[in-house]
Amino acid sequence: MTATVLDVRDVQKTFGAVTAAQDISVAVPEGAVYSLIGTNGAGKTTFVNMVTGYIKPDAGTINFGGRDIAGMAPRQITRMGIHRSFQIAQLCNELTVEENMLVAGAIHGNHRPSFLRNGHNAEARDRALATLERFNIAEHRNRLIPELSGGVKKLLDIAMAMAGKTSIMMLDEPTSGVAADEKFPIMDLVIGALRSEGVTVIFVEHDMDIVTRYSERVLAFYDGRIIADDTPDEVLSDADVRRYVTGAAA
């Protein structure tokens, strides 16, 4: 039995009349790969946002690394080892691919970012290049972000998030905005890289083929609640999930 790395208990969040999270409880074991499914507006992003500090839950606790991180600032949570990518890739559009990676490297280096050391120093560039190669996007290193395809943007977003010591990686729809034939190669790359480092992965996904193929466990969200928490097979054959999430046809 592996230890629990993330323990979410009775978390609540409402936005005005909308209940975005209601009695959310889940315990994620270290090294597991979880996926979050649910229709639009079910509360998946809200869950990711609460764990990563973007929004503060109204009630409940989120235990990680021996502390309750609910309501902590994103920066602090990142520093503790929970990293994330975004539904819409968050990149610096005026910088090149390599420079985006250098920024991530400078913030996550072994030392504090320096006022003197050149941001483009050889060692940092080598490290950035190695990461870009690992994610198969090194050929784009000198391009600016607006010139990139959706898939490359997503990969860069994830590569940047992985620059620091990562214990949990939360990926919000890693394959949205990505061409159909790129989805599996991207997931292979990303999940492979994260797994090889023993990182716990929680990803939001609408494509059930990807959910079945890459996750060990699925959390099905509906109306701000978790209606199923089990293996992909169990969850996808669950009556409620078929009714509310995957659609009657499934």
Partner: peptide
């Protein structure tokens, strides 16, 4: 030209990204 200078350019561009990198 420093690491801090690069982070400043990044912050001008996308604050959310910089905060979520931990700076």
């Amino acid at each position: 030209d420093s690491e801090q200078g690069l982070i400043a350019l990044a912050a001008r561009d996308n604050e959310l990204r910089v905060e979520y990198l931990g700076a």
